[in-house]
Write a protein that binds this DNA or RNA. Sequence first.
DNA 1: ACCGCTATTTATAACTA
DNA 2: TTAGTTATAAATAGCGG
Lengths: 158, 158
Amino acid sequence: MGRVKVEVKRIQEKKRRQVTFSKRKNGLMKKAGDLAVLCDVDVALIIISSTGLPYQFSTAQSLRQILDRYLLHVEEEAAICNIVNGAKTHDVLKDIGEGGSLLEMVERQLEDQHIELLNITQLIELEKQLYSLLRETRNRKTQVLKETVAAKNKKARK
Amino acid sequence: MGRVKVEVKRIQEKKRRQVTFSKRKNGLMKKAGDLAVLCDVDVALIIISSTGLPYQFSTAQSLRQILDRYLLHVEEEAAICNIVNGAKTHDVLKDIGEGGSLLEMVERQLEDQHIELLNITQLIELEKQLYSLLRETRNRKTQVLKETVAAKNKKARK
DNA sequence: ACCGCTATTTATAACTA
DNA sequence: TTAGTTATAAATAGCGG
C-alpha cells in the first residue's frame, strides 16, 4: 500500500529496510492495539530487530502475564500429551537428575518427598520457589558474563 | 478500512465481534510475517481470545526462542538495575529462602556452594536443571488440577 | 534519522449466498 | 455459519525537507 507494490522479501538497501521497519512496526502495534480493544482480547507482540533490540507491545500490565498464560496453556497440552503417551513424572524426574550435576543433592532431597505425592498447594509453592531461583540464576549468569566482557575490554585497552 | 469508519472501542454485538476478530487476527499475523521477511527481524505474536484460547505467530522455530531472548534482555536490564541500586544477589536469595517452605533444604544446600561463587559453566548447568525441574513441577500441577476436576465431575454425575 | 505529503496498494465492514 | 464480493477506510512507499 504505497506508490508501488512491493514483493514480500528481504529489502536489500539498508536505509530503506530501516525506514520500512520503523513504519511497519508502528503500524503493526497500532493494529494489535485496535484488535485488542475492538474484540476484547489480550495481545502480546515482541519484535526483535536485527541488532537484537527488542520492541514490545502488550495489553496486560505486564507482558509476563500473557506469556505465563500462554506457557501455561502450552504446558497443559504437553502434560496431556505426556499422560497419553504413558510417560511417568517419575521417569522424567530421574532423567533430569542423571548426568552428575551440581544439583544432585537437590534431586535426592526431592526424591524423598516425591514430587508426585505433593498436593496442589505444595506444588504451587514449589513452582514459585523454583521460578525465583531460576530468575536469580539467570541474573547472576548475565552479571558474570558482563564482568567477563568488561574484564576483556579493560585488558584490550592496555 | 471498510464500508464505514469504525470507532476503536469494544464491539458490542457478539457476532460482529467474532467476525472482526477472525478477520483482523489473520490480517495482523500476515502483517507480522511481512514485517519479519521485509526487514529481516524476529517477531512473536500471541493473541488470547476472550474464551482463553491462545493463537500464536512466530518467525523462529519455536516461540520459546523469541521469548527467551526477550526475557534474557529484560533480565539483563533488571540485573543492571540491581547492580545500580546496590542490591546484592545474596540478599535476594535470602529473601527467597525465607518464609519456611518446602525448599528450605534446597536453599541451605545452595548456600553452602554459594550462587555468587559459581562459574559461568556451573551457572548455565544450574539454570538448565532448575528450568527442567520447574517445567516438571508445572506439568505435575496441571495434572493434579485435571484429576481434581475429573473427580468433581464424576461426583456430580452421581 | 524523522516529519509531512499523497498516489497507490492493502485491509476490511457490510453485504451476499 | 462460513466463504466470497465490493465499496471504502487505512496503511504505506517513495519523495522532499
